[in-house]
Amino acid sequence: MIDLYTAATPNGHKISIALEELGLEYRAHGLDLMSKEQKQTWFTNINPNGRIPAIIDRDNDDFAVFESGAILVYLAEKTGQLLPSDPKNRSKVIQWLMFQMGGVGPMMGQANVFHRYFPEKIPAAIERYQNEGRRLFEVMDSQLKDTEYLAGNAYSIADIATWPWVRIHEWSGIRIEALPNLQRWMDLIASRPACQKGIQIPPPSTLSDEERAKQIQKMVTQ
């Protein structure tokens, strides 16, 4: 049994998707980020950084794992799935996983902040992060010209890590026009039942986009 501590965000969805893909038994615990539940002591004992997602593997001496990329690697190694065992192909998957962790996620996250949440509109900052997000999309589109998935022709944790971010490109104000390979990949991943279920865990917010933006803006500026 895996206990998953999560929220309806791209980073949270990575892990619920992976758990669904791997067929692991788990319990999802949704944290209220707006009330800063993730900063409470009980949770920082699991993840000292006070961020979701985190897991506790009850079948492995209650072993706790935090950081979404580290969780994906842990689950893949636990099951022997979604991460090749041969060194070269394993390295390719890890490289594209790090591409998401160090590039796609942070750049889109900053685009979200300045495009949606920051109380003062700073055009130069918005343009910087949207342009960098688009550049990273172009890198993926070029890679996907010759491969079905990001790290080759096998679905992996690199795809699971990246898709939840790319699927919300409109929220970040980043266009995907003229990126046919990226769009093909997005549709391919979106058709997977585990992905469709994973993005519903925990249930998405019922707030409108405007209400959600105002709520997050309040959290960002506190």
Results as ranks from 00 to 15, higher is better:
124 A>W: 13
61 D>K: 14
163 W>I: 01
10 P>T: 04
6 T>W: 05
184 R>D: 07
162 T>L: 13
52 I>E: 00
165 W>F: 10
176 I>W: 08
149 Y>P: 02
11 N>T: 13
164 P>M: 10
64 A>I: 09
179 L>S: 06
79 T>Q: 13
188 L>R: 08
37 E>H: 06
110 Q>V: 04
44 T>Y: 03
107 M>C: 05
17 I>Y: 01
28 A>E: 14
74 Y>E: 11
184 R>N: 11
171 W>F: 15
170 E>P: 03
17 I>N: 00
147 T>Q: 05
204 P>K: 08
89 N>A: 09
10 P>E: 05
153 N>L: 07
83 L>C: 10
60 N>D: 15
118 F>W: 13
1 M>F: 09
88 K>Y: 15
2 I>C: 03
79 T>F: 03
134 R>G: 00
59 D>Q: 15
182 L>E: 06
177 E>K: 12
132 E>Q: 07
141 D>N: 13
218 K>H: 14
152 G>I: 04
43 F>P: 01
49 N>R: 06
125 A>M: 06
191 S>A: 09
8 A>N: 14
94 I>P: 00
202 P>F: 08
211 E>F: 04
130 Q>K: 09
18 A>G: 07
158 A>F: 01
206 T>L: 13
62 D>M: 13
103 G>F: 05
41 T>P: 04
70 A>V: 11
113 V>K: 06
74 Y>S: 11
123 P>Q: 11
47 N>C: 09
28 A>P: 11
115 H>F: 04
63 F>E: 07
35 S>A: 13
143 Q>G: 01
77 E>P: 09
88 K>I: 15
148 E>H: 10
9 T>F: 06
28 A>T: 14
155 Y>V: 01
198 G>E: 00
177 E>R: 08
126 I>P: 00
178 A>P: 10
81 Q>F: 07
44 T>A: 00
142 S>R: 08
45 N>T: 08
35 S>I: 04
178 A>V: 14
13 H>T: 08
103 G>A: 12
14 K>D: 07
148 E>T: 12
166 V>K: 00
141 D>G: 06
66 F>W: 11
54 A>W: 03
116 R>W: 05
53 P>W: 03
65 V>D: 06
151 A>Y: 00
101 M>S: 10
2 I>P: 02
61 D>P: 04
110 Q>H: 06
182 L>T: 05
16 S>R: 07
165 W>E: 02
65 V>S: 04
160 I>V: 07
111 A>F: 02
180 P>E: 15
64 A>V: 12
135 R>K: 10
141 D>Q: 09
216 I>F: 05
85 S>C: 12
183 Q>V: 08
137 F>K: 01
43 F>T: 02
151 A>E: 02
31 L>C: 13
19 L>F: 06
209 D>V: 14
214 K>A: 12
85 S>R: 15
65 V>Y: 05
121 K>T: 11
120 E>P: 09
